[in-house]
Design a protein around this nucleic acid. Structure first.
Lengths: 303, 303
DNA sequence: AACCTTATTTGTCCAGGACAAAAGGAGCTC
DNA sequence: GAGCTCCTTTTGTCCTGGACAAATAAGGTT
């Protein structure tokens, strides 16, 4: 169980928590937390528990809470707040039990069985049902387990890889289709690719013609790519971890840049909560709505 | 042609070039470059050409050059140095012409034709030849075009997506096999996934049992995952953009953590140049060597 | 050439000050 | 009570200039 050094420097904390060095120093100056020790040359050394608390703080702050109100709370309290705020319930009990057993495989690192089980579920359900009734609830379940600290980075990556292989195979198997032409991507700070692949899978299986640029596309480039490729729709995906404000800002900016004839769709947990609609942007709260949005577009644009 | 603002702040420069704010200020203090303008509140505003030069500087410094020697050179000179240092030639003229036409499709955003062409090439060549004779030279070609500024972010992402779809389909199609069990991943700052997929494709097609954790896995987690999963080999991939020293450091650390019985393989442009061997780590200079390394392992471990 | 020692270069950290953008609240009107 | 404006507090980011250790180069000796 080789763990890293128990005390880490400020640069490492920035890497691990995503909090800039300046902010770390400022919080210390203002609130007295974190309170790192110092090494022989007076440089900050953060113990693991403080880093863990910082990680939780970051997530809550990204959700719109204010650091000043949170900073005194214990790690446990913060963990509960995160769960209360994020925990999603899975409606269908059938899906829940199926997914729970998959998470169990994941936790035990049974990678081969995991692959087989996912593969079989896909074959049995078909692509659309697989995305809606298996992948979506699994994402929620795994997100919750992650918050509770029940699964770690390697498990989460393993899951992502396996699902990615399946979805990409399925997408690849369906040849490119007709209208609408959809450009899929995410904003620069968004690394999660599954939302994008789920949407692409649904759209492609309804005969839409999709081009994905993967994650992390600068806004100016999204605009130029959309113009160059004669697209009807630009679709963006936001994971739960993505800061909501940044999403709204970016969408506003992109909407202003894009030609009027191009629709802009945005989906994912980060914006699902937002009540403030952005003019000219379609918010997709649930992955299922992707299909109705497609149908609506086709009705509106029937030549 | 909506381009972003022509002058950008220090945080944006850090994001775009990868140079920390502290370093940007230090270079300015020491060398007089960059020499950003200031906005009304005395904050640095970097013009686009300085940012471009910084981007080139970063790459050269990552390769081991020293900033003090480079800082006065012009953008053109720096570009030439980069090419002289990196530019790879593609040996086989047949592969070169095939790949050039693919790059042409990419540049024209002919995504559907690109998909079809790649798909057909894969079918014609078979998986192994496709990886070795098409994907590898294409990566080189596209890397060079990128250095010359001939292709942009969206093209590069589009290419990555398409190849990823193909390779993942192919990998997914081959069921999991026998020994050795190989764990594939990259270090935290490495985002490029193609090298990993290429290696996985080659290994799987020779019947090895591969588990990929995708990119960005912290070293401590690589170690624990390798122990938990009964792996024979841990394989890491490093793109040309990855700082060579960081690769060597990380490999040394990981080697020390891993049990002796587990082999450690490292491949990719970032370490291909390094002459300094790391004890207990197999350096794979060319993607083709993956196959001979596998054969060697099987010979050595024939029970 | 191989090795040790000394100089130089370079990146990262620190403190503490400043201020703008965002969020919260107070008071007002309809 | 919803919507509005104006004011206050909170918060993050940027600034300067100093310090120093780690990495690299250069010089000297065997």
């Amino acid at each position: 169980m080789s763990k890293g050094p128990t005390k880490i420097g400020i640069a490492a904390v920035e890497r691990e928590t995503g909090l800039p060095k300046d902010t770390l120093r400022m919080w210390e100056r203002r609130y007295g937390f974190p309170q790192p020790e110092r090494d022989e040359h007076d440089e900050r050394l953060y113990p693991a528990d403080q880093v863990e608390k910082l990680r939780l703080l970051k997530r809550l702050v990204d959700q719109g809470m204010r650091p000043g109100k949170l900073i005194e709370a214990s790690i446990e309290t913060l963990g509960e707040m995160l769960q209360a705020r994020q925990a999603q319930t899975i409606d269908c009990p059938d899906a829940a039990s199926r997914c729970n057993s998959i998470v169990e495989l994941l936790r035990l690192h049974r990678s081969e069985e995991l692959r087989r089980t996912l593969q079989q579920t896909l074959l049995k359900q078909g692509l659309q049902a697989f995305v809606v009734e298996t992948v979506a609830p699994l994402n929620t379940l795994i997100g919750n387990a992650w918050l509770r600290g029940e699964i770690q980075v390697p498990e989460e990556h393993l899951y992502t890889e396996q699902v990615q292989n399946l979805l990409r195979s399925a997408i690849n198997a369906q040849g490119g289709g007709q209208r609408p032409r959809v450009l899929l991507t995410t904003f620069p700070d968004e690394l999660h690719v599954l939302g994008l692949l789920m949407a692409e899978a649904l759209l492609v299986s309804e005969g839409a013609s999709c081009v994905s640029l993967g994650t992390q596309m600068p806004i100016a480039n999204i605009d130029s790519a959309a113009r160059a490729g004669d697209f009807d729709i630009v679709a963006l995906s936001f994971s739960a971890a993505f800061p909501g404000r940044q999403a709204v800002d970016g969408l506003t900016q992109l909407r202003a840049a894009l030609p009027d004839g191009v629709a802009l769709w945005a989906g994912g947990r980060a914006i699902a909560g937002r009540r403030d609609a952005i003019p000219g942007v379609s918010i997709i709260t649930d992955i299922r709505e992707t299909l109705s949005a497609l149908e609506a577009w086709r009705n509106a644009n029937a030549a």
